[in-house]
Design a protein around this nucleic acid. Structure first.
Lengths: 163, 163
DNA sequence: ACAATATATGTAGGTACCTACATTGATGGC
DNA sequence: GCCATCAATGTAGGTACCTACATATATTGT
């Protein structure tokens, strides 16, 4: 079984989703390995949330979800695990009892300080990869825009109607 | 909560994994919606496997895994569900009893014929998106190459060592 | 005032992958 | 010939998301 070609690569557009997934899996996995190498118990899905709270102070589930363009469910689930580990706690909003803003605990603040170097290293490495790939990121922006303009589903329905 | 900016986009390299994941989730999800819209019970993860068998005839789990650059485990799990639905069946290899090549059943062949139009529509739509994004795919190739050259983990460890 | 509706959050269960480990069968050295 | 090792596949359990649905609280119309 010597060196088979990469068919997802050959397939072009047909495998676009698979390729994006494969790359994101790899990046998430290697990020996890980096934390493990330093003996830090950290889940990559926490990154966006902690990053938001560090920038903006306590934020609600809904606000974090729309900032990160994820569902509120993902944020809610991540909060539960962050809370279980003691890195965040929930505040109460005097005006609206439905809102329970997420805030860092002292332990959470210590974690963000401990991780600052690794986050910088990951960010630098990603920037390096982006440069070696010929500045991929602006094209991801444009793909986001193209999908916002017209969804893949809409496009595919149109193509399927008049093939 | 009017129109928040997309922070994963603003974050540049730091959120590269998250962005790739978000895009792949979206593409997978909308593909699933397309199949559902036509009342066809099809899981997107089956695509690469059926595509390989259609091109090459019966293939083993291991060969499909290396062609698609996925683990044998993913292929093995997908086989189980494809087999349960009656779309594929397992052959025996006279020379090596460990190998159990996966082959299409007549029902599986009928499925591939039924889906040919939708697959073409998805492929055309992805090509259209790729063009609107400024020809993203060659840059994904280069990102794959850059990671093969030196992993994100290696790079991040180096950056972390001398910040 | 209060029902109808909208918003914030949560739970259950699903998806497409993964790592770690187990099992079975082939193969090479002695 | 047979044991050690390697190769092909499978199982258990995990990850970072998701949709569909449920609950609690606020807001709006009459």
């Amino acid at each position: 079984m010597s060196e088979q070609p990469d068919y997802s690569r050959l397939a072009g557009g047909a495998a676009l989703g698979a390729r994006l997934r494969r790359l994101s899996e790899r990046i998430d996995r290697e990020s996890a390995q980096l934390y493990a190498a330093f003996g830090i118990e950290f889940e990559q899905r926490w990154f966006g949330i902690l990053n938001q709270i560090m920038r903006n102070g306590p934020m609600t589930v809904g606000d974090i979800a729309s900032a990160l363009r994820l569902t509120h469910v993902s944020i809610s689930q991540a909060r539960r695990s962050l809370e279980a580990k003691g890195f965040v706690h929930s505040l109460t909003d005097g005006k609206d009892a439905r809102r329970r803003p997420i805030a860092l605990t002292p332990k959470g603040e210590a974690l963000t300080r401990e991780l600052a170097g690794l986050w910088q290293a990951l960010s630098d490495s990603a920037a390096e990869l982006n440069a070696e790939a010929g500045d991929l990121i602006p094209l991801l922006d444009r793909l986001d825009d193209a999908l916002a303009e017209r969804s893949l589903l809409d496009r595919a329905l149109a193509h399927a109607a008049r093939p």
